[in-house]
Computed example of a mutant assay.
Amino acid sequence: MTARPAPAADIVVDGTGLLCVTLLLRLRAAIDGTGPGSVVHVIATDPAAPLDLPPWCHMTGHDYLGPVPDDDHRVFALQLAPGARHLYNSVRSGPCGCVLPGGCWGAGHDGVSAVRRGRAGRS
């Protein structure tokens, strides 16, 4: 099976230097008002980005397309879906300073692990 080339980007979100939820919040702000079917390339230096982006896409309803070959940056692609959910309309900061829906859930929270565990939105 041959890998398909990533579609060209309609939007590029530069998340260089951003960690955890900050990257997802920047992504959310960048795509606000962008139409379904748009392809977004996310430049990310956070080593957890390949773990964070697929579940974020799953929770919001967007399509995660995977890594994009790039010689200079770590780039990941997603495609915006019609009727996607907006998770960050009512956020509150948790004890660790994260801004997940409903805040965080305790000690050792890295800002995104609750999203990976499927607990986002619960208080």
Results as ranks from 00 to 15, higher is better:
L23V: 13
A77Y: 01
G66V: 07
V42D: 00
L53N: 07
A8F: 10
A44K: 09
V12E: 15
D14P: 10
L87F: 14
L78W: 00
L51W: 08
P7D: 00
D14W: 11
V91N: 02
H73W: 12
I31M: 03
T16V: 11
H86M: 03
L23K: 10
P5M: 06
A84G: 06
S93R: 15
L25G: 09
D46W: 10
A120M: 11
D14V: 13
V115W: 01
P95T: 08
V12K: 13
V39K: 00
S38L: 02
A30S: 12
A49C: 15
V68G: 09
D10W: 08
M1G: 08
T60R: 01
G17S: 13
L100G: 10
P54K: 07
G94A: 09
M1W: 05
I31K: 01
G94E: 05
C98L: 02
W56L: 07
S123H: 12
P36M: 02
A81C: 04
G102A: 13
A48M: 13
G121Y: 09
G61K: 02
D14K: 11
S90I: 15
H58F: 12
A49K: 13
S113A: 15
A29W: 04
S90P: 07
H58T: 05
P69Q: 10
V75S: 11
C57F: 08
T34I: 09
H62T: 03
P50C: 15
D110R: 05
L80A: 05
G15M: 11
L18T: 09
I11A: 06
G61W: 08
C57D: 00
D10L: 10
H41W: 15
G83A: 07
G37M: 03
G111M: 08
Q79H: 02
